[in-house]
């Protein structure tokens, strides 16, 4: 991986493509271990939410996004109308636009089929691994092979663990309150993000609005709360910046 090759390497020599692919797999492998329990819990929750097993499995490859899939199980369990499920999934996955923007330059030269495939495989994990790869010195012209390694590795493990979860899911008693594991996952994702005032304000605004307007029809509280939180985060960020400028 740390090949001392400062000269621009000839495009797509098979060896270095394979090296990048393997490096991608290696970069994502610690996360693969983590994806297994996640997939298991998702599969079990999907079945308990009343999603037919074939669809519960298909969601993992159609949507292929962990937190969105957990969200879907929650929304289906609460009989949320389809359009609002689509909208909620789009909002939670908006962050991928940022990854897409960050990688666009690096992938611009690739043929369409590469762009389509890598976009489909673009997850939090693949993006994080690609960022670390780009920060290391050296030629990054084969970064698409790296993304392919992380993406495919994660895809395969994710599908298998979701299938296992769907198969096991029906046998887990309701009394275990497994649905709470979904909420705990969200807590584990959100808490480390609360690093500054704007982030805390975004969380507080979204939480308060969600509780206040919870009774709105069609689970509209999710979208109302998400938009309030985003607006509050940007607003407080601006206020903090202004205070900093005055000080």
């Amino acid at each position: 991986m740390s090949t001392p090759a400062p000269a621009p390497s000839p495009a797509l020599t098979p060896a270095s493509a394979r090296q990048e692919f393997t490096a991608g797999l290696a970069a994502v492998s610690p996360l693969l271990l983590g994806a297994v329990p996640f997939g298991l819990i998702y599969g079990a929750l999907a079945v308990q939410a009343g999603i037919p097993p074939p669809l519960a499995i298909a969601i993992s490859s159609i949507v292929f996004a962990g937190s969105a899939q957990f969200m879907i199980t929650k929304l289906v369990a609460a009989a949320t109308p389809g359009l609002l499920i689509v909208l909620s999934v789009a909002i939670i996955n908006l962050r991928h636009a940022l990854y897409s923007a960050a990688l666009a330059d690096k992938l611009a030269h690739l043929p369409l089929r590469w762009k389509l495939l890598l976009a489909y495989l673009l997850t939090d994990e693949a993006y994080a691994a690609a960022l670390r790869r780009l920060q290391r010195s050296g030629d990054a012209s084969l970064i698409h092979w790296h993304l392919m390694g992380t993406g495919l590795g994660l895809w395969i493990v994710w599908q298998l663990s979701c299938i296992a979860g769907v198969v096991l899911g029906g046998r887990i008693p309701q009394a275990w309150s497994l649905d709470f594991a979904g909420t705990l996952t969200f807590i584990a994702i959100v808490v480390p993000l609360l690093k500054d005032k704007p982030a805390l304000a975004a969380m507080a605004a979204a939480g308060v609005v969600a509780v206040l307007v919870f009774a709105l029809p069609y689970k509209l509280f999710i979208i109302a709360a998400a938009l309030s939180g985003m607006a509050m985060g940007v607003l407080v960020e601006r206020l903090v910046a202004r205070q900093g400028a005055q000080a």
Partner: peptide, 23 residues
């Protein structure tokens, strides 16, 4: 747009967390 996206996971996931804990 990039600034706003920073708050998307926090806001969207909190919208699901708080009602499950409080209601």
């Amino acid at each position: 747009f990039a600034r706003m996206l920073r708050y998307v996971p926090i806001a969207a996931l909190t919208a699901l967390i708080w009602p499950d804990l409080l209601l």
